[in-house]
């Protein structure tokens, strides 16, 4: 017994230490930093209590970033989930060149986000970019997609959905493949329409996958900002400033590390709340075998 515990501890220790050093300790340190002022030159950090938190209310960009992130998440999560499911169903069927189509769908996932952003940067370029050349065929004039505050955020959403759907598709595809074929046979015998079968059998059976995919999509909606850095740097007029991008700006461009730490705590709180809701609400609906 004693030896078993010792062995177990020894086996867990490396992973636990890593987790402690790179996840738990930084989280605690951030929380502590958020209670102190930013040290600047000759002025050391002093304890300010909740002042950093009340200062957040004076940051108009933060509210803009929160609103942007809300819309960004609201659009990209359902869109990428729906698209990935559609793609998975389409390549699950028997069709010629299936492997090629699957690979094509998955390609965006393999590419680094920075490369993806640079490709899309070209697509969105006014006049000679892909989109403008395309709409130019119909006689429409130039559009400055990324430098117009009405289209910049939707442009970011398109990139995110394009990048993520292929990844989620793999999970849906795996789930569809593991679904016993006799279910479909029974459905056919009972005379269920394809839509009925999907709604009553496939979709409920996919629920655990959907839960996993949605949790990941939510995290990514707050975590992936590479394309913002490359394509718009948060502009124009903060139209594409997402929460994490704003934190980076405040922390590593303005060097207001205390304010950045405070906003990080806010971000962690939002993510924790979302994860909690997801597991309680969606988890109840998920049907595990």
């Amino acid at each position: 017994m004693q030896r078993q515990t010792a062995a177990a501890t020894a086996l867990i220790l490396p992973a636990f230490l890593m987790l402690l050093a790179f996840t738990h300790w930084p989280a605690v340190a951030t929380l502590i930093d958020s209670l102190y002022s930013t040290p600047r030159g000759s002025r050391p950090a002093v304890f300010v209590g909740a002042e950093n938190y009340s200062d957040l209310l004076d940051d108009p960009v933060l509210f803009k970033a929160l609103a942007n992130n809300f819309w960004y998440a609201l659009v990209t999560i359902p869109a990428s989930v729906a698209l990935s499911l559609l793609m998975a169903i389409s390549v699950n069927a028997q069709l010629p060149g299936r492997a090629l189509v699957r690979m094509a769908y998955f390609t965006p996932t393999i590419l680094p986000m920075i490369a993806v952003a640079n490709i899309w940067l070209f697509f969105f370029t006014p006049d000679y970019g892909l989109f403008d050349q395309f709409v130019g065929l119909f006689g429409l004039g130039r559009h400055n997609w990324l430098n117009d505050s009405d289209t910049a955020l939707p442009a970011m959403m398109v990139v995110a959905v394009w990048k993520e759907s292929g990844f989620f598709m793999i999970f849906y595809l795996a789930a569809l493949q593991s679904m016993p074929p006799d279910l479909a046979e029974v459905g056919r015998l009972e005379g269920a329409s394809r839509w009925m079968f999907f709604r009553r059998v496939t979709w409920p059976l996919l629920m655990p996958t959907t839960l996993f995919v949605v949790v990941n999509a939510v995290i990514n909606a707050f975590r992936t900002i590479d394309h913002v850095v490359v394509m718009t740097r948060g502009g124009p007029d903060n139209a594409t400033a997402l929460l994490l991008y704003h934190i980076y700006d405040v922390g590593f461009r303005f060097w207001d590390t205390a304010q950045a730490a405070t906003m990080t705590v806010l971000l962690v709180a939002i993510l924790a709340a979302l994860a909690f809701v997801q597991f309680v609400v969606l988890g109840r609906k998920a049907h595990y075998r």
Binding site: S149, G235, D237, R253, F254
Partner: peptide, 21 residues
């Protein structure tokens, strides 16, 4: 002082003016 931050605040507003907002 705090140059990057002041510049950013100005650039944001210049964006808004140029976009006609």
């Amino acid at each position: 002082h705090d140059n990057q931050r002041v510049t950013q605040a100005l650039d944001d507003q210049l964006d808004a003016a140029m976009l006609g907002k």
